[in-house]
């Protein structure tokens, strides 16, 4: 491997790793508070990408019952990204109210909320197909208005070209990560979030409105998922209603790698898997999809608490 390839791999790995990180944070925030995995997160990722597509004023394809409709307005891409992610956040809130809260109030088995979130994922994926069809959708070319397709990190004689959209994805993700870290560590809301994550009952006794906080968590989780969906879609395209399934599964590998419910862990895990995938040699590129799951399997066998996780004392 030449030095050029090495730098390219590092930059590409950081770029996709940062998207893994913000997506996986959506899983891990919910897990840290409720101790459950929201399997509908991958479908929220898909929805976010579609929302942004619609908000930029592009028309729906010819299949599905919404065929060829378009919104009467068109937002600039950055605004559409934020509003689309916000809508995905609202879907997250809806999922909590319809699929998680009823089960929680009945004190049901946690495995059941896993199943109901899978049910929600089935509904969302097929609703998308029903409404806008199964074809692939692409944003307008160069959605961020960058002008040039690649940026050269090397010298003119020895170029190290990196796709500029990857750099924007990295930048946006890092900004989101910083904002989220500040919210969690510096605001009252974030402190309350940490308290609920530590012990829900005690937090409620101390006067924290846990139900509202859970809603807030689902909003943030959905927002992050939708944002990740749009960012990934800018570098490829929306491949159809199943766009988020593979990413959703990979996100699971990320959070397990970092430690379930561990917020810095999700970020570390995202970058580790992003870099590991970027360094798969080109002749084995077909096996790239298996890297995250192989890591997941290995980490579960040798260190189930994850890279940054604490060992949980088993209670009788």
């Amino acid at each position: 491997m030449t030095l050029t390839q090495f730098f390219q791999n590092v930059l590409n790995g950081l770029s996709i790793g940062s998207v893994y990180a913000i997506f996986a944070l959506g899983y891990t925030l919910v897990f840290s508070i409720l101790g459950i995995i929201n399997f509908a997160h991958g479908s929220v990722f898909t929805l976010g990408a579609y929302f942004t597509y619609m908000l930029t004023g592009l028309a729906v394809g010819f299949n599905g019952i919404l065929a060829t409709t378009r919104l009467p307005f068109a937002l600039p891409f950055i605004l559409a990204l934020l509003v689309g992610s916000g809508l995905a956040g609202l879907v997250g809130v809806l999922i909590e109210r319809l699929a998680f809260r009823p089960l929680r109030k009945r004190g049901s088995d946690r495995l059941l909320s896993l199943v109901s979130s899978l049910g929600v994922a089935v509904v969302i994926v097929n609703l998308i197909q029903y409404l806008v069809g199964a074809e692939a959708y692409s944003y307008r070319s160069d959605p961020f208005g960058l002008g040039q397709p690649t940026v050269n990190f090397g010298t003119p004689e020895r170029p190290i070209p990196v796709r500029s959209v990857q750099l924007v994805i990295f930048a946006v993700s890092v900004v989101i990560l910083i904002v989220l870290t500040l919210i969690i560590n510096r605001t009252r809301l974030g402190k309350a979030l940490q308290a609920v994550a530590e012990d829900t009952v005690t937090a409620r006794l101390l006067g924290i409105n846990t139900d509202r906080l859970i809603l807030f968590t689902f909003f943030v989780s959905g927002f992050l998922g939708g944002m990740a969906g749009t960012l990934v879609a800018t570098s490829q395209s929306i491949t159809g209603p199943y766009f988020g399934i593979a990413f959703g599964l990979k996100g699971l590998a990320v959070i397990v790698l970092g430690g379930l419910g561990n917020i810095p862990g999700a970020v570390v895990g995202g970058f580790v898997i992003g870099l590991a995938e970027a360094f798969v040699p080109s002749q084995y590129v077909a096996y790239k999809e298996a890297v995250a799951f192989a890591l997941l399997f290995i980490i579960l066998l040798i260190r189930p608490q994850g890279l940054l996780g604490r060992v949980q004392v088993q209670k009788v």
Binding site: L103, L112, S116, G119, I124, Y130
Partner: peptide
């Protein structure tokens, strides 16, 4: 939209027939 109904039944089933 058969699969939409399928998904809804899964959600309702877990809530009402735990």
């Amino acid at each position: 939209g058969r699969l939409i109904i399928f998904g809804l039944l899964i959600v309702l089933g877990t809530i009402f027939f735990p």
